Simulated scan of single mutants.
Amino acid sequence: MADVDVPTSHATIRHRPFEDAVALAVGALLVSLGVNLYNRAGLLTGGTAGLAFLIHYVFGWAFGPVYFAINAPFQYFAFRRMSRQFRIKTFCAMVLVSGFSMLHPRFIHYDRLDAFYAAALGSSVMATGFVVLFRHRASLGGVNIVALFLQEKHGIRAGKVQMSVDLSIVAASLFVVSPRVLAASLLGALALNLVVALNHRPGRYVGM
């Protein structure tokens, strides 16, 4: 199957390698900060990150390595369906998020963190990071790879695909968290995917 790429035009502005590198670092830093907020508040999210949180809460294993391991199988899909540039950038972003997620606790400490505040702020920060990564032809693996493929190949909005999966995973996590934490997690999932859906649409951003 041919690689999935966004059609270029004379108006398309290609990102330089330095711009892509900065975007990957900033996007991964923002996403990992949101993950840190979620982790400290005991929240859940969707996608492979949500599965990593479940394993982290149940078994006490570090989030970063678990997240990276869960995403590994999705790299096969990326290898078969997505462009080489996308695969490389996505792998780098995954490594950065895994690393940053272990770095934040060394520098950030919370005396008190409300679950709903953490959900609102954490989801907004993560969504911003996702948009930065998406606009530089990268993702964080897992459901993001499938969502971007469906958007570029079939015109199905990535935010809608992500939202459907996220809500399903969070709802299935009722046995792990309290109803209040689950409600905050659902709010965060809605906010995150709403921000992505409003700010990442086919044809709106032409940078490559």
Rank of each mutant, 00 (worst) to 15 (best):
P73F: 07
G159Y: 10
F175W: 14
I108W: 14
G159V: 05
H56N: 15
V165H: 06
A191R: 08
L167H: 09
F116Q: 00
S123G: 01
L33W: 06
I13D: 10
A78N: 11
N36V: 05
A52Y: 01
Q162N: 14
F107L: 15
D166I: 03
S32Y: 04
M126T: 06
A69M: 15
L187N: 01
L192D: 03
Q162Y: 04
G50M: 08
L43S: 01
A69P: 05
F79P: 01
N144D: 15
D166T: 05
G64K: 02
F77P: 09
A49E: 08
V176E: 11
Q151M: 15
D114F: 00
T48Y: 04
P73R: 01
V31P: 02
C92G: 03
L198N: 11
V58R: 13
Y57I: 10
R84M: 14
T128D: 02
I156H: 11
R106Y: 14
L194Y: 10
V31K: 04
F63S: 01
A119G: 03
A189K: 00
V177L: 13
D166A: 13
G155A: 15
A11I: 03
L150P: 00
A11K: 13
K160S: 15
L96A: 12
S124V: 04
L37Y: 03
V181K: 09
G34A: 00
V165C: 10
V58T: 13
E19C: 12
V125Y: 03
G129C: 06
V177A: 12
F77M: 11
M102C: 12
L24I: 10
A183D: 07
F130R: 00
L198D: 11
Y110V: 00
S98I: 04
L186D: 01
S9M: 06
S83D: 10
V97K: 01
R40A: 15
V22L: 15
H104D: 06
D5Y: 13
L140T: 05
L54H: 08
F91S: 09
T45M: 09
A147G: 07
S139N: 10
G159H: 11
T8P: 00
T12W: 09
V131P: 02
L192E: 06
I70Y: 09
L190V: 12
S9D: 13
F130I: 00
P202C: 10
T8Y: 03
G122M: 03
V176P: 09
A158G: 09
L54C: 04
M126V: 08
V125L: 10
K89S: 10
L186W: 03
A127P: 01
M126H: 07
M94T: 02
Q75A: 12
R87M: 13
D166G: 13
F59Y: 14
A78V: 13
V177N: 03
A119V: 02
Q85P: 00
Q85N: 12
L192M: 11
S98C: 15
H104P: 07
A11R: 13
G129H: 00
Q151F: 01
